[in-house]
Design a protein around this nucleic acid. Sequence first.
DNA 1: CCTTTGTTCTATAAATGGTAGAACAAAATT
DNA 2: AATTTTGTTCTACCATTTATAGAACAAAGG
Lengths: 125, 125
Amino acid sequence: MIIHIEAESDIPIYTQLTNQIIEGIARGEIAPGDSLPSVRAFAADLGVNMHTVNKSYHELEKKGIIKIVPKSGAIISSIEQMTEEKKQLIEAGFKPVIAEAFVLGMSKKEIEELVSGMLNQMKER
Amino acid sequence: MIIHIEAESDIPIYTQLTNQIIEGIARGEIAPGDSLPSVRAFAADLGVNMHTVNKSYHELEKKGIIKIVPKSGAIISSIEQMTEEKKQLIEAGFKPVIAEAFVLGMSKKEIEELVSGMLNQMKER
DNA sequence: CCTTTGTTCTATAAATGGTAGAACAAAATT
DNA sequence: AATTTTGTTCTACCATTTATAGAACAAAGG
């Protein structure tokens, strides 16, 4: 999986990393059961600090996407059940981007097609 | 339009305000041509600092959603043409939320229905 | 004429983001 | 068994961001 960090971005490095790992899973490049590199190895690979990678991993664990097993590694979790709480968090994430797309002039149909197109880039389960 | 600011949130106050104004426009509660309150009046109303509202307004202007006319007010803009650059910014905004929803276990169909449902809360143009 | 307006400036305080180094105990490897 | 690697934890430092505060200004509005 190729990670591309932009130091100049206004998005924090650890967030860029978190998002790109999630996108890698969505695309099927890495799958549940697979291990992520160690924080030290990944940090050296990306040219960032160990603590920055560590923060990203803990963010992913908080979201329920990976499981950090001390002295063993960060393993991608299997998908658990969809709770109402999780669904509301996801909806809260969608809210501002949908409203902005609509206000900036995209039609409902265009937005739906954009979302469908992006979903087609992801690997079916 | 009702604005609800959560001081305890990890989302900056000016971002919360920006998003809720955008959502208000999307719902049709405020329309192009309408004026937003003055930074001082809005700040007093919300119980936040004048500069915080000012920052939100400038963020909205940067996005092309309002026009700040000095000594006159902040007027909601009409929708301009959809450029390829704007579409790519919107797509970049969708990317992480779609990937996360998918990885957290929502099916493509569920995601599409969630988006459609949220779009139906918005006022047709 | 007076108030309101957005802008601009300085200032302060807390939180965030990123890097850095060191130390530790446990797991994995050799 | 000895060594390396691992995630964790701690302190430390620095720049930026977030939020508030007050003051001053010129221009628009009533």
